[in-house]
Amino acid sequence: MADATLLAVRNLRVEYASSRSLFGKPTKPVRILDGFNLDLRTGETLAVVGESGCGKTTLANCIARFIPAAGGEVVFEGLDVLPLTGLALKAYRRNMQMVFQNPVSSLNPRLRVSAIVSEPLETHTSLDSSARQARALELLAETGLEASFIDRYPHELSGGQAQRVALARALALNPRLLLLDEPTSALDVSVQAQILNLLQRLQADHRLTYMVISHSLGLVQHISDRIAVLYLGELVELGPRGSVFATPAHPYTRALFAATPVPDPRRRRNYVALEGAVPSAANPPPGCRFQTRCPHAMERCRIENPALRRVSADHVAACHLLGDTHIDDKEIKP
């Protein structure tokens, strides 16, 4: 059961609505994700990393049904959730919750913590208000907050406390999957570690599956089981944390790691500086999407977009440098 797939993203396509030009002619829609595939295994923590604009938040928003997909499937426990509406969608939401980047702004300033944490219970269960209050206290205890916090307003909470409240709200209905969008980036460094430890404890206690969106490699190294690297809407590398950190196969992943400062004054910086900016998603380069900034770009990269190739047992990357050991698209679905 450990390796069973909880959520499978298949051929997902997300477009942002075309704006109309001056004379009403629709312009070409911007494809944020185009034929995207990714699997989440039950109980794992998958980190999705990449630069701003690479589509990682779009992916989470699409899985959480906040934005519509233009095509493809998101299969949760064998059921495609993209066409769901009404009660079926509500049932899916019960199993999947998202936690947002800035915890304070994800809490309504006019509601007390008790109302915030019991809102999911009020929406999905028939518990009366005293039962909801009792459950809210339970959830606060679980996320490491004292019972006295129940009557506070969000502006009376610190960032870390607010994130704990947001987690308590997300856990209220015992979901199976949590989408964590930059769960610590708005917090003080000292608080980040506490939240990460809390996340790990909650995962163990509830058999939760995490998809963590982040650009912080420190966080990723601490918490993830597997890492997915995105560049301009495409998966460029996917593998177990240890393998990806030890032997990054894609030039982009290597540049990403090299650009992360190491807190060691004796170590010299020797990063492969990336030249130029990320190309626009509205007008991606031909061939490999990374070719405009890749230090190893070859003739072939300008013509052919590389497919994913196997690096090791569970580790794949999309780069022509890895030779031509093509693998079937189905085979790489880990």
């Binding site: 906040f66 702004s105 994800s106 309504n108 509601l111 809102e119 929406t123 999905h124 709200r169």
Partner: peptide, 24 residues
Amino acid sequence: KYVKAARGIGVSHATVIRRHVLPN
């Protein structure tokens, strides 16, 4: 974000307006 969070929980539009939009 708190409106988005409420929608993510599955709260109906009417309740989101009453509980999250109007008071603010």
